[in-house]
Design a protein around this nucleic acid. Sequence first.
DNA 1: TCGCAACCTTGATCGAAGTCAAAACACCGG
DNA 2: CCGGTGTTTTGACTTCGATCAAGGTTGCGA
Lengths: 248, 248
Amino acid sequence: MALSEPFIKNHDCADCPIRHRAVCARCETDELRELEEMKFYRTFEAGQTVIWSGDRMDFVASVVEGIATLSQTMEDGRTQMVGLLLPSDFVGRPGREIAAYDVIATTTLTMCCFRKKPFEEMMAHTPHIGQRLLEMTLDELDAAREWMLLLGRKTAREKIASLLAIIARRDASLKLATTRRKIVFDLPLTREAMADYLGLTLETVSRQISALKRDGVIVLEGKRHVTVPDFDRLLGETGDDADGGLPT
Amino acid sequence: MALSEPFIKNHDCADCPIRHRAVCARCETDELRELEEMKFYRTFEAGQTVIWSGDRMDFVASVVEGIATLSQTMEDGRTQMVGLLLPSDFVGRPGREIAAYDVIATTTLTMCCFRKKPFEEMMAHTPHIGQRLLEMTLDELDAAREWMLLLGRKTAREKIASLLAIIARRDASLKLATTRRKIVFDLPLTREAMADYLGLTLETVSRQISALKRDGVIVLEGKRHVTVPDFDRLLGETGDDADGGLPT
DNA sequence: TCGCAACCTTGATCGAAGTCAAAACACCGG
DNA sequence: CCGGTGTTTTGACTTCGATCAAGGTTGCGA
């Protein structure tokens, strides 16, 4: 959900097995080395739970590869996704002991982790890192509030269109800025996960996707592969104003 | 929405007309003085707009007295509140030029403001302040996500009960922790504002409040003065687990 | 005191999304 | 190729909250 540059960036580095290095864009090399030395990697299978809400969480991390969801569940089983973690997104809450949400790997997931304690110590004497984190948290807050508008006021069709637009944009930004042209991507979520994200049931999600397909807003190949022939047309279905306004 | 201590605290100070001083709990006196010198106050009438979404916003602020709302509006007029600002809450986004939401005074409102530029400069050489701000932003993020669960998955009755519980708690915490006993407070919002917060219509809000009254969960005197005879009973209506789990 | 304007409540009706149920599809291992 | 499991689609029906439409309160200024 990051508007601004990621906390951690990919790079080309022969000795770095997953082409990934701890990089704060504004930091000096010494700090880089410090971060570099304390990092470690963890991977999870699709469907595995990274952490349960309420558990002690002694690390912070950055998503390297794959997708994870943040969600909350009520006792009776109703669940709501409160965030979608894509590569370069940050997970964890400096200064907090306990995880507030379930983090679940949707696909095979690789995260670049830092033990919380040393990370926090480093933050304390490296203002840039804290500032970077504050910016990213503000971005997440914006995204969460944008989502509140979606959950509280949008119709099912608008919700679906908004989700597709966000995923398309997020996906496209990694490849090429292709606004106003054909966009192709794969849905990283099941219908059920989409429903949990959008505050709908999976049946409604399915029906609305069928409707968008019927109306020619999207083209489906299989269940997951989506082609958007006219991205502006899709944006028009989101209910947002011309520019789309959505962060990410 | 702050779980942790407010960025700015009230205190007793004869030369401070509204008994309010810039205080970062962790800061040294020099920093205090610096903040102290750059602060200024602004007041707004009930109903006045503090700032429009999209406007340049060259200050950050802390609410001293009164209540304001953060909201987003779609072109066709649907609006969703994304935050409620009560005394001690922080407004503004260091590092951001433009306001992302409409900020509207619900009651007469007094804010303690700091020009953004000098405030940011101060942040740059005072890690404590940035850290404090990060913590507060994380709290807001938690609150926003809690609200996503409410908007996406709760019934109208649960939504109303949750809102009442939050206002009651917030209000009570300023006076006395009175969990599990009778709680009395005034609703600071019109039915319409509640509807915009909860993603409902004002008619539904009205009906559900009537229903809670009929069921004895709350007692109303006039339209705004609420008595909760049994706070746990109210919590039971929110759909949250035993403890209520809600931030704030 | 009246009249007006907010604000709130209540009723009747409607419709979007939820629920329940069945069937289609896809993918996998044997 | 088959049966099985998990995902997705589609249909029939229900329901919660929205919409439309009166009325009721309250407070204020003339």
